[in-house]
Design a protein around this nucleic acid. Structure first.
Lengths: 126, 126
DNA sequence: CCGCATCCAATCCGATACTG
DNA sequence: CAGTATCGGATTGGATGCGG
């Protein structure tokens, strides 16, 4: 239990649990968050639309992910009081501002996936 | 740069399991990968040095994360045959190229964490 | 149409003990 | 110093059924 943590470390130190980067990573780290944000990039979508568009997501995880995004102010949920219910989700300004860094990551993935797969092949066989 | 397509869908569709973005997210999605990469940003580090620097990581997870990064060609592991053993880890060129998009994400986190926390507060109390 | 509740299997991960 | 091996609690997440 030797605490290396000196009580006055800067809050952005990524090794502290309360740091922004850590919190963001905890949010986008899960399997679905980034996919949902991406699916909302083009504009508002209905619940069923998202479920159909994001291959493999279960109702449970889609709902859970949308709630978490809504809670963090990244997604706005609008309920239209009609029958049958119509619920639309769209990115907030904050949510849209996340698209740029996410896009950079996607760009990296596309540009470098071949190298990564090749390295994996080498590692497993060599 | 060869594509990894299988079937008729485009390889960059993030909803396909084999897509680069999905694979990258699976890699950086876990709790420790990004922290380890960050801890190696300044140069080579020894195993124990990393363990000490990354607060809260267990031996098991540190080793596991380093192996995964090595397998993907993002980290280079060098064993110096001396007693006691000396093992150094450092980012490869590929690994270093990941620092930019990761940095963009970190900047977003720092710039927007306050808004996220405020939204959370609203959601929980309102 | 939207989404919550429950069950349950799979996985993750920290703790602990041991090794060259 | 730099790991490996194993156990068990905690978490994740899919499947299913129900409710507004």
């Amino acid at each position: 239990m030797t605490s290396v943590e000196s009580g006055d470390e800067p809050p952005w130190n990524p090794y502290r649990k309360a740091c922004p980067t850590r919190q963001l990573l905890d949010r986008i780290g899960d399997r679905w968050t980034v996919l949902v944000v991406g699916a909302l990039a083009d504009g508002p979508r209905r619940y069923t639309e998202l479920a159909r568009r994001i291959e493999g997501v279960s109702q449970k995880m889609l709902t859970q992910t949308l709630r978490a995004l809504e809670r963090d102010g990244l997604v706005v949920r609008t309920v239209h009081p009609v029958i049958p219910p119509r619920v639309e989700y769209e990115l907030s300004d904050l949510g849209r501002s996340l698209l740029a860094p996410l896009g950079a990551l996607e760009r990296w993935a596309i540009d470098n996936i071949a190298d990564v797969l090749a390295a994996r092949e080498d590692y497993d066989h060599g």
